[in-house]
Write a protein that binds this DNA or RNA. Structure first.
Lengths: 258, 258
DNA sequence: GCGTTCACTTCCGCTCAGCGGAAGTGAACG
DNA sequence: CGTTCACTTCCGCTGAGCGGAAGTGAACGC
């Protein structure tokens, strides 16, 4: 019965997006059959959609036959973050230069941190953040720094959900985490001790604009060097303050005409 | 006549992509009506498509009612460039650190350079490249560095097309440009003198893998400081060589299992 | 307060673009 | 040579999609 068994009520747009959604950090390269399986669609449907996406360069087919996200989407994505990354980058560079440590910048998206930039050198580091990647808030320095300065209802909402436990050191009891967040707020910066990854500690400070946390700057170091963390706090705070100023200025600037 | 006047032979996928294609660096924020106009579709069609794209966070609606590219596309885009940016970034940092100049990395895409990374400080510089942006090859340092090492048929093809002339100094005569590219190839690096932007000069070197130019590293300085360019060439060449090695190593590494 | 303009937002009859099972193709393997 | 795998192509059927038209809400000027 050709033409039968149509999946009810599903738009083409949602299907196109499901194809794109099949790709993630764990699955950056996929065969047609894998895309079909991951998106839950018939192979021939996927074949049609992927053909058009490839023509537009949203997806690119490598010589081995696998598809990956194409440059066109990367270009388009560069329009997304607004001025934050641009204004923060030079300060991240300075923090990298003055501390010698790898530096990252994250924002809150829902109940996760989303890493929007990273300045790193050639030294191997125990850093699990990936630009464009997401991690939970409560075990990460930047996550704590962001969460601590959110309104109480956001914090309460976050604490009302089950908290995952990446390591045995992760703080998952709501009461204890709430106390931790209050301390972060009082101090102005956050630290973690093997809460996200065994062998890693971090320090982070929020980028505040009008008292609201719009981003956080963080540094991750190996636990073997945990005692060095205290010297990192001040430079992090200084840079976070500079980014706040620069971002506030950028937000207040007149929008480009169009 | 409801249901009439359907635009013939146009797929939904192509329409979705046309909506996304309406956004560019000059038009990063658009109203629904502007998207409709730029994509050449009826307002109600665009309304439907944009609704779904917004739900998926491919587009985000700002408080002023305008749409911009959403974080989800930015995240997806981070999967695109492969290892090049990752392996190059630390070396770009070093070049920035050792020269004090802003540094960018570009690849060839068709007959344009596409900027894939940039390391910049707080000093204002006459640099027109934007990460995710495109420029013509012949008036840019990185463009020349890339083009000079392409096979002859690519060079011939590039030279057979009309060459734009951003400044009076731009080399647009095919013969003259061909000679310039031969010199670039012999020297191993490229320079420009106010060919892309009045007031700006650049130096750039290709990142070669198996003799093929996979990227180029460049620095742009103000023409007032053009005499300093000669001191920049050696560090650029060194870094380009390091990136070549690192990228070759990354390409040769076993692919992550999936 | 009223009329006008602008930017959507909703509605719905009509139809063709899209679906997906089935058949076909090509490459690799034993 | 047969089997398996990963597509690629085909085509009858139908409901998702189209877009003009109508409706809504906000802003503005008189």
């Amino acid at each position: 019965m050709p033409g039968g068994a149509r999946q009810a009520g599903r738009s083409v747009t949602s299907r196109v997006l499901a194809v794109l959604g099949a790709f993630d950090a764990e699955h950056p390269r996929l065969t047609l059959t894998e895309i079909a399986r991951r998106s839950g669609m018939a192979l021939s449907t996927v074949h049609r959609l992927v053909g058009e996406l490839e023509a537009w360069q949203a997806l690119t087919r490598a010589p081995d036959g696998r598809f990956h996200v194409g440059l066109r989407l990367w270009e388009l994505g560069q329009l997304a973050p607004g001025p934050l990354q641009q204004v923060a980058r030079p300060w991240l560079q300075e923090l990298f230069g003055s501390t010698g440590e790898n530096v990252h910048l994250a924002v809150r998206d829902g109940f996760e941190v989303l890493y929007v930039d990273k300045v790193h050198g050639r030294r191997a580091v125990p850093i699990v953040s990936r630009v464009g990647g997401r991690l939970p808030m409560h075990p990460t320095g930047v996550g704590k720094a962001l969460l601590a300065f959110e309104p109480d209802r956001v914090v309460a909402s976050y604490l009302s959900r089950p908290l995952e436990r990446p390591t045995p050191h992760t703080i998952t009891e709501p009461g204890r985490l709430a106390r931790e967040l209050r301390q972060v707020r009082e101090r102005g910066y956050a630290v973690t001790h093997e809460e996200m990854t065994l062998g890693s500690c971090s320090a982070a400070a929020p980028v505040l604009v009008d008292g609201r946390p719009v981003a956080a700057v963080g540094i991750v170091v190996s636990s073997r060097r945990a005692r060095e963390m205290q010297r990192l706090v001040e430079p992090i705070l200084v840079v976070a303050g500079h980014i706040s100023d620069a971002y506030r200025t950028a937000l207040a600037a007149p929008q480009p005409p169009q």
